[in-house]
Amino acid sequence: MSTVLEYHDLTVAYHTRPVLWDVDLSLPDGKLVAIVGPNGAGKSTLLKATLDLVPLSSGYVRVFGTHYDKARGRVAYVPQRESVDWDFPSTVLDVVMMGRYGKLGWFRRPSAEDRAAALDALKKVGMNSYADRQISRLSGGQQQRTFLARALVQDADLYLMDEPFAGVDAVTERTIIAILHELRDAGRTVVCVHHDLQTVPEYFDWVVLLNMRLIAAGPIEEVFTTEHLNHTYGGRLAILESAATSLLRRNRGART
């Protein structure tokens, strides 16, 4: 079992607001990991920090033992549905093909092979009859499945997903979790920001409890306990937050 993700002393702040503080975490490969915590706990930010999408105030992230830039081809990202404008003039197939762009790099055009891979991925999520449907005419579950297909088409070793089960119908949820289990069984690693505590033990192997700082991380049986959950959801750490905010404000030269 090797480490696929490593976070050390990770601190991320949005201007003077601390979002992640001093996070130290190692995730092993081949697991289905849930990241869980209250709103604003920094869960999405953790994913974004992994992908080098947000600047780090301190600390570092290692993906497959190296910086994300070098590991890019092995990582697939499924952002939150709301982060995208679904009125964009595009079909389902178009969106799935976008998953191949990273491998193509600048300027090269998608080939027939890419198209076939995209259709394959659509079939896996049960959306192949929707290939030509405009994305604004999809339901929430269909949008999510499109996004999943877009990730599958990248044939990655690590999948980072932000709330893949939010607002989807039961059928879609079952489809998605089945696919994620397949990926895990094939030795891939899947990390999901998850909002529904009820389904964590059923769906996932590992859990990361986050509330601005790391509360606990590890196998479900060990870590997903009432005590840890109380710590996670027991309200914001007023002292830590105000101290951290003070620090950040001072560093920016704001009047305190």
Partner: peptide, 16 residues
């Protein structure tokens, strides 16, 4: 394709 991707999903564009 670069314009298409970055317009539709800036996050994935950056990550790619």
């Amino acid at each position: 394709k670069e314009l298409k991707l970055s317009t539709f999903d800036a996050g994935l564009a950056a990550a790619s």
